[in-house]
Design a protein around this nucleic acid. Structure first.
Lengths: 111, 111
DNA sequence: TCGACGCATCGACAGCTGTCAATGCAAAGG
DNA sequence: CCTTTGCATTGACAGCTGTCGATGCGTCGA
């Protein structure tokens, strides 16, 4: 497993500090690409701004105005990018953001 | 002189604070999508880590290992996303990052 | 057991994207 | 003037991506 430094001190590659290696650039690019879609940004926003910090997937379809399969697809993309996690409870799946992952991306853009 | 929107409060949409509108999401998504490519991230990184803060376009082709038209294309994408600016001097064009733009994206990911 | 429900997967399709060779174009330099 | 140089644009193409309807699969309630 490619444990490229998890949340720590010299934790993450920084875009603005030194030239990125190809692998660093590839990893970061996948994460940013996951943010590069308006529907996914809105999904992320809906999850983060929910009082409970998590939202049932069934409540995400209407707000974003896409079909259920499309929403499911976007949730998968966000999930594979490590930006959200899903918790299955009975028939429902509750999704929540992974703040550490967002922090890592924010750090990558720090001066 | 651009004293619009007192820089502090409603400066920029935040993904994690409240549900994004479609236009906000679209605008942010375009910016993040520009970061969603390893070649563009490396270009950005090369510009930012340059001692002079800017780099001649002619010095970007070899490091990223892509053809000159491809590099030109990526520079255009970054430029249209407001992440970099080009300054033409004689035959050369010197590119530099726009730190304010990156700060705005970082803010969008703040808790 | 059975039907309804929630979510994922599949198949298909249009549109977008990254890439390069060829070409165009403006700015020096001769 | 003509040539060279640096960069952008064009045309073309394969691969990826967002989208939806149809379908499959597991989980509950009746």
């Amino acid at each position: 497993m490619v444990r490229t430094a998890q949340a720590g001190k010299e934790c993450c590659p920084n875009v603005l500090a030194a030239p990125l290696s190809e692998t660093e650039a590839g990893d970061l690019a996948r994460a940013f690409a996951a943010l590069g879609d308006p529907v996914r940004l809105r999904l992320l926003s809906l999850l983060a701004s929910a009082p409970a910090g998590e939202v049932c997937a069934c409540e995400l379809v209407v707000p974003v105005g896409r079909s259920q399969p499309t929403v499911s697809h976007h949730l998968k993309v966000l999930s594979e990018a490590g930006l959200i996690v899903g918790d299955k409870r009975g028939r429902w799946i509750w999704y929540a953001v992974v703040p550490e992952r967002l922090t890592l991306l924010r750090r990558a853009l720090e001066p």
